[in-house]
Design a binder for these strands. Sequence first.
DNA 1: CTCCTTATTGATAATGATTTTCATTATCAA
DNA 2: TTGATAATGAAAATCATTATCAATAAGGAG
Lengths: 147, 147
Amino acid sequence: MNDPAITQTWLEAMAVHGARQTAARRAICEVLASAARAMEPLELFTESRKRCAGLGLVTVYRTLEILEELGLVARVHQPGGCNRYIRAAEGHQHLMICSACGKAEYFEGDDLSRLFQQVAGRSDFLVQDHWLQLFGLCRACQSASTS
Amino acid sequence: MNDPAITQTWLEAMAVHGARQTAARRAICEVLASAARAMEPLELFTESRKRCAGLGLVTVYRTLEILEELGLVARVHQPGGCNRYIRAAEGHQHLMICSACGKAEYFEGDDLSRLFQQVAGRSDFLVQDHWLQLFGLCRACQSASTS
DNA sequence: CTCCTTATTGATAATGATTTTCATTATCAA
DNA sequence: TTGATAATGAAAATCATTATCAATAAGGAG
Ligand SMILES: [Mn+2]
Ligand SMILES: [Mn+2]
Ligand SMILES: [Zn+2]
Ligand SMILES: [Zn+2]
């Protein structure tokens, strides 16, 4: 699904949820849907403002809240902070993040059930959910650090 | 290693680092070292204050900063917030957290290198680090939800 | 053990990100 | 086109975390 399509999907999902379609929300969705990296509210505000003059930072926070509530967007946790947002995973996916440029990409989650059973057996825990995130260098940043 | 031993280790490591041994720090370390769950600064303050009258919240923040810097304590990220701290992992371990009571336990990290190579191959990313965390129910909370 | 340097402490004020309030404006169903 | 009301942005309020600073205590030198 390409970026404009994602934006459209988000706006429609918001409409179903009873939220109105506004210029502010469209701008915010467009920017976030086409972002290659997870963005923090202030960045998203600065970028979205270029498409929607007069946009307020509060509206960015409020829009993110709705998108997250609908499961369309997810908060990204990183060593440097946990206030960045990115398009949510589709199905069982996890994030791979470049520690140099911040580029984020989803990959299909592997079956870790054997590991989970092992853990469950050893510790008496019933595993229900898991967080997995990889950090490293994207192709571009690998080349950059080589030269 | 039992809790008093952990406390001692922490205080000694801090001493090597050039930090003085004080009643406030001892109290904070004792509480955190013996905690079964990750604790947030305010909780840690409330508990530690019982062992060190007059303790200030600021000192909790400052002590956590040092312990984290020395790699003895780690911040724990959870859906509900990212301001809790717990004894750091020893070697390659990951956390298993009970979503009902918060109980946290480390388990030995499995070898996921095959998965990482797979990801690297498909996405051109060079994997350098990973975060894995499991959520579920501890034994006690499983029983509680059954009854 | 005593003294002295200086790290540590807690009270207090400052900061900065996120939320709330509220009067004005815009959406969209009828 | 109209009207009920959701959405907006400016401004104020919150709240966790940090910075200041004068008083105190740790611990090495003598
Ligand atoms: Mn986090
Ligand atoms: Mn691992
Ligand atoms: Zn990169
Ligand atoms: Zn539990």
